[in-house]
Design a protein around this nucleic acid. Structure first.
Lengths: 164, 164
DNA sequence: GGAAATTAATTTCATATGAAATTATATCAA
DNA sequence: TTGATATAATTTCATATGAAATTAATTTCC
């Protein structure tokens, strides 16, 4: 990274009020610290307890409520990329938490479901992550929670339309 | 990951309403998709334009407004870890955007500042990232923006207190 | 029917990341 | 002093990540 810059800059002319720029009040930076804190708190639940990675937990969460899905369907429902899902499936299979069968009609398609052991882990985790969710939102009224989700959704939509 | 689970689970008894768990309404998951969208939109600015990585941009942003700092001070002001900062400094030096001098009093300490070229890149980027920030928050009133930041800060504080 | 295009899933490869170890200097305490 | 401890910064090493290539099965269209 930081290869030779494309735009022409003479290195002398300083314009605008860039000097006053403060990273710590820059909105994307605040979003990042917010995400980091939230993310670290969740990892504490499924990480140490059952040795799951983030991708494994998400894969399990999607399968836990949908019962039977293919890898592609998990990709759609989890906003993870297909490599992450493929590796999560591998890890969960090795741990005996997930079962993989080839679909009768379409031999490319692998049908995935939690094993009884996987299902038990899932049911052990759900109340814990729900409690964590409550702890994260502690002190916020129902209305504030709704406001937060709605504002986040609006900003996310703005961001997605910028990315194309 | 997904090594042998520690807790005892017989794999048969299903309890609670885990079946109804939906990842897509799980708060930490929503925070993550929000972060991913915002993050991708910012990367579009400093990435292609000047070939900067995220860490390089942040390091530059901190130095751009503080003029002269050590690597540790950048770590404090950017919420990055010291390895990321060290590597960002290396990249920025190789690109001629940052200058490193050993402090006279403390020979361990490296004093960093942007070169004229680095300063020019910074001044080129600031109006662009400010415009992006505005695009992200488009459609939100001043009050709504304040509300969003305040709610995010409260949740972040909750999360940090959970992590210890 | 069979070549071309499509779809499912995995593997490869090159890069990113962070905890722990390392190097080097500075300070503290006997 | 000098041995022990602390601090600044970098390097190492093991793991995580994702784009692109690969493998394999299926569908489309002539």
């Amino acid at each position: 990274m930081a290869k030779e810059a494309a735009s022409e800059l003479d290195g002398e002319t300083v314009h605008g009020d860039a000097r006053a720029f403060d990273l710590r009040s820059f909105f994307p930076y605040l979003v990042r610290t917010y995400y980091q804190a939230v993310s670290a708190s969740v990892t504490q639940i499924y990480g140490p307890l059952h040795g799951l990675s983030v991708s494994e937990w998400r894969t399990m969460a999607v399968l836990g409520s949908h019962r039977v899905l293919s890898a592609s369907e998990i990709v759609e429902r989890s906003s993870m990329d297909r490599v992450a899902v493929s590796r999560a499936i591998k890890g969960l299979r090795e741990a005996g938490l997930l079962k993989r069968d080839i679909d009768g009609d379409d031999q490319r398609r692998a049908v995935l479901r939690l094993t009884p052991k996987g299902s038990a882990v899932f049911h052990d985790l759900v109340p814990r992550v729900r409690a964590l969710e409550e702890d994260l939102l502690a002190g916020l009224s129902a209305k504030e929670r709704q406001t937060l989700l709605s504002l986040m959704a609006r900003v996310r939509d703005n961001a997605l339309s910028l990315a194309g």
